[in-house]
Structures are given as C-alpha cells and as structure tokens.
Amino acid sequence: KKSYVLIKVKNPKTKETHTIVVPEENLEEVLKALASQPNVKVVDIERFP
C-alpha cells in the first residue's frame, strides 16, 4: 500500500497556492526539484492516512 503526501506550494510573486499530491517514496526528489524553483515556496506538507 502506497502512502501519499500532500505538498502545498505558494508562488510569492502571484500569491497563488497549489497543492501537489506525490507518493511518499518520491517526496525527497520532488522537494529537491521544488527547492530549485526560484518562485516556489513550500508552505505545508501533510501525510495521507
């Protein structure tokens, strides 16, 4: 059974918020990819039960 993680990201320029759902096993690479985006800020990470 896969567990999923909900990542909320915000664009500081446009103030838009997006929610991305990723499998927990991919969380680290997704966070690394997001960290390299200049106008993306991770605001929240939630685990799915």
Score class of each variant (00 low, 15 high):
residue 42 V to T: 02
residue 8 K to L: 12
residue 15 K to D: 11
residue 19 T to L: 11
residue 9 V to R: 00
residue 43 V to T: 06
residue 1 K to L: 10
residue 7 I to G: 00
residue 14 T to S: 07
residue 19 T to Q: 05
residue 3 S to G: 12
residue 18 H to W: 14
residue 26 N to V: 09
residue 47 R to M: 07
residue 1 K to E: 13
residue 38 P to Y: 03
residue 4 Y to I: 07
residue 1 K to G: 11
residue 27 L to S: 02
residue 21 V to P: 02
residue 16 E to H: 13
residue 48 F to S: 05
residue 38 P to M: 04
residue 39 N to R: 05
residue 47 R to N: 05
residue 29 E to N: 08
residue 47 R to T: 06
residue 17 T to N: 04
residue 49 P to I: 08
residue 19 T to Y: 13
residue 17 T to V: 14
residue 41 K to D: 10
residue 38 P to G: 12
residue 37 Q to D: 13
residue 47 R to V: 08
residue 5 V to H: 02
residue 17 T to G: 03
residue 48 F to I: 13
residue 17 T to C: 13
residue 13 K to N: 10
residue 35 A to I: 07
residue 15 K to G: 15
residue 6 L to M: 14
residue 37 Q to N: 14
residue 16 E to D: 07
residue 4 Y to V: 07
residue 21 V to A: 05
residue 14 T to F: 04
residue 31 L to C: 02
residue 41 K to S: 09
residue 26 N to Q: 13
residue 34 L to S: 00
residue 12 P to S: 15
residue 41 K to N: 06
residue 24 E to H: 05
residue 12 P to F: 15
residue 43 V to A: 03
residue 45 I to V: 07
residue 34 L to C: 02
residue 46 E to A: 13
residue 39 N to A: 05
residue 24 E to F: 09
residue 11 N to D: 08
residue 40 V to Y: 11
residue 21 V to I: 13
residue 44 D to I: 12
residue 25 E to F: 04
residue 13 K to T: 10
residue 39 N to P: 02
residue 43 V to I: 12
residue 31 L to I: 04
residue 47 R to P: 11
residue 17 T to S: 06
residue 42 V to M: 03
residue 31 L to D: 00
residue 7 I to Q: 00
residue 24 E to C: 09
residue 24 E to I: 10
residue 22 V to N: 00
residue 25 E to V: 05
residue 18 H to E: 04
residue 16 E to F: 07
residue 12 P to H: 15
residue 42 V to K: 01
residue 22 V to F: 02
residue 18 H to I: 13
residue 44 D to S: 13
residue 18 H to N: 06
residue 39 N to V: 03
residue 12 P to W: 15
residue 35 A to K: 09
residue 10 K to Q: 14
residue 36 S to L: 12
residue 27 L to Q: 02
residue 22 V to P: 00
residue 21 V to D: 01
residue 23 P to W: 14
residue 17 T to F: 11
residue 37 Q to M: 13
residue 25 E to D: 08
residue 6 L to C: 05
residue 12 P to L: 15
residue 49 P to G: 06
residue 18 H to G: 04
residue 5 V to K: 01
residue 43 V to D: 03
residue 11 N to S: 04
residue 9 V to G: 00
residue 25 E to G: 06
residue 5 V to M: 05
residue 34 L to W: 02
residue 39 N to I: 03
residue 35 A to H: 11
residue 7 I to P: 00
residue 44 D to G: 15
residue 10 K to C: 14
residue 47 R to H: 09
residue 12 P to D: 15
residue 31 L to T: 01
residue 33 A to M: 13
residue 5 V to T: 02
residue 6 L to T: 14
residue 17 T to P: 02
residue 25 E to Q: 06
residue 5 V to G: 01
residue 28 E to L: 12
residue 43 V to Y: 03
residue 34 L to G: 00
residue 20 I to N: 00
residue 36 S to C: 11
residue 38 P to E: 09
residue 21 V to C: 14
residue 49 P to E: 13
